[in-house]
Design a protein around this nucleic acid. Structure first.
Lengths: 169, 169
DNA sequence: GAAATTAGTGGGTTGCAACCCACTATAGGG
DNA sequence: CCCTATAGTGGGTTGCAACCCACTAATTTC
């Protein structure tokens, strides 16, 4: 826990106007902390860009799910993405209103609403994906291509290993 | 972006009761996404444990800063940790009330309130640090020691490279 | 020693994510 | 048919993080 340096005196020369202050090593030593902090940065920057188009992360997640797995009932999206059914209804509403997805009653089970992505939706997703990669380039700037791959594969393994699905995001 | 499989039919055999649903590859391919998701998990689990003691992440951050850099004025903590002065006042209040830090007017500049960590505070921080490492062990379970070091150093470089201090956390 | 600056505090607001409940419509089992 | 379960929706609440403003007290500048 950094047993080195608690120098009781806080009286620096005071001639320094405003250095870039450093974070406590005790925190920086924790991957937990770095993960959380860097993750939040990444998330925040992506959310920022999406917000410019009036979109949220969930919108992208839903589009991605539809693009990757084809048309699905809302309940499937709910289970896959782990968000509240009620919230998904709202997201789907927006996306449908904007023409990015289509909703239709499932003829086999008319309780279900089958959601499918439109061409406009696919086009949008492609753009969002590009934005996400742009953010990635910003955030991972200090790493070269090889290191990024290592990071990606480590993160992927960590992700798959995380037991509880953990609601949200 | 996973140009493979949008099979128009959503009619699976229906004999499957409830498989573990997979996340869209389009998302999983993004380090941005993994970083954000894994980071959130880590943060959430640590916050959970701290909450059991009525503490927040900021409390730990403040204690860490005091332990690592010695007594500081609140303004220094504010700059270092990047949180709102007003919010720090509240955090410091709690910590002082619980006896983990002490506040005293700086004799040189009596506007300043110099905050220092107490022995109880150090003991607490040690416990919190242990908790954080326990969470880390959970989260990084899929990785061996060597891989964890690699991850740590990659994250550290990413962190140091992130330009704007980015308020929060 | 009056004016401008800085540290800290108290008391708010705002935005968002997560969550929850009541309700409708449909389905399926007996 | 009646009863229970499931899919979706609308309309909320709650908790938290971030942020902001007004105010006091002490300090520095001129």
């Amino acid at each position: 826990m950094a047993s080195e340096n608690p120098p009781p005196a806080s009286e620096l020369p005071a001639s320094e106007p405003e250095r870039a202050p450093e974070l406590p090593p005790t925190l920086l030593d924790l991957s937990t902390y770095l993960l959380s902090r860097v993750g939040k940065t990444a998330r925040g920057r992506l959310a920022e860009r999406l917000a410019e188009r009036g979109l949220r992360l969930w919108d992208m997640a839903v589009l991605a799910s539809l693009a990757d797995f084809g048309p699905q009932a809302q309940r499937d999206l709910v289970r896959r993405l782990g968000l509240d059914p009620s919230d998904l209804a709202k997201v789907a509403d927006q996306l449908a209103a904007a023409g990015y997805v289509e909703r239709a009653r499932d003829r086999a089970d008319r309780r279900r609403v089958s959601v499918s992505i439109t061409d406009a939706g696919r086009a949008l997703l492609a753009e969002l994906d590009a934005q996400a990669r742009a953010v990635q380039d910003e955030v991972l700037a200090p790493l070269d291509a090889g290191e990024r791959e290592v990071l990606q594969s480590l993160l992927l393994r960590v992700h798959r290993g995380s037991g509880e699905p953990r609601r949200g995001l």
